[in-house]
Simulated assay, not measured.
Amino acid sequence: MALTKPNQQLRRDLKAIAFNLEHSCIDLVKLAEKLSDADAIALMGLVGTLYERADRLAGYAEEVSARQITRSKSN
């Protein structure tokens, strides 16, 4: 059975946000390469956290696909 439209939109939103976070991380890594060691290390810590959040959002999108997370109506 296909996902409802609200759940399809939720899944798309979660995947898009995760994708955008991952691409922001790529940009931040490029920036870190131009910084001093201490600043780069601090920035890479932030990048790691953002990657974890992106993975979590992608996991939520998969839970929507598996119908473990649902949206009752579109907002």
Rank of each mutant, 00 (worst) to 15 (best):
K73Y: 08
R53I: 07
V47Q: 00
I26Q: 14
H23T: 12
P6R: 03
L50T: 02
L28H: 05
I69H: 03
G45I: 02
T49S: 12
S65I: 15
A61D: 01
D37R: 09
Y60F: 09
A2S: 13
L10S: 00
F19N: 09
D27S: 10
L31E: 08
Y60M: 10
C25P: 08
A32M: 03
S74D: 15
R71K: 13
L31S: 07
N7G: 03
T70P: 05
N75E: 15
E63K: 12
L21Y: 08
D37P: 14
T70N: 11
P6Y: 02
T49N: 11
I69W: 03
L21W: 06
E62F: 04
A38H: 10
N20K: 12
I17Q: 05
A66H: 06
A61G: 00
A32V: 00
A32K: 01
R11C: 12
L57V: 11
L35K: 04
D13T: 06
F19C: 10
E63T: 11
M44W: 01
A66K: 08
Y60W: 11
I26M: 10
A32C: 04
Y51Q: 15
F19Q: 12
I26F: 05
M44F: 00
K5N: 15
L43V: 08
G48F: 03
A18W: 00
K5D: 12
T49R: 09
L3I: 04
I69G: 03
R11S: 13
I69Y: 02
Q8I: 06
R71Y: 01
D39S: 15
I41N: 11
M44R: 00
E33R: 10
A54V: 04
K34E: 15
Y60R: 04
A40Q: 01
I69V: 15
N7R: 01
R56N: 10
N20T: 07
E62T: 10
S24Q: 12
A38L: 14
K73H: 13
N75D: 12
N7Q: 10
S24V: 06
K73F: 08
K5H: 13
M1S: 14
E63F: 09
R71W: 06
E22M: 05
Q8T: 13
G45V: 02
Q9M: 10
L50Q: 00
D13G: 15
L10T: 00
E52S: 10
A18G: 05
K15Y: 05
L3Y: 02
V29L: 08
Q8A: 07
E22K: 14
T49Y: 08
K30R: 12
L46K: 05
N75Q: 14
A18F: 01
E63P: 08
T70I: 15
L43C: 07
E33P: 04
I17E: 12
G45E: 03
D37E: 12
I41H: 05
Q8G: 03
N7W: 01
L3T: 01
L50N: 00
L14H: 01
D13A: 09
L43W: 04
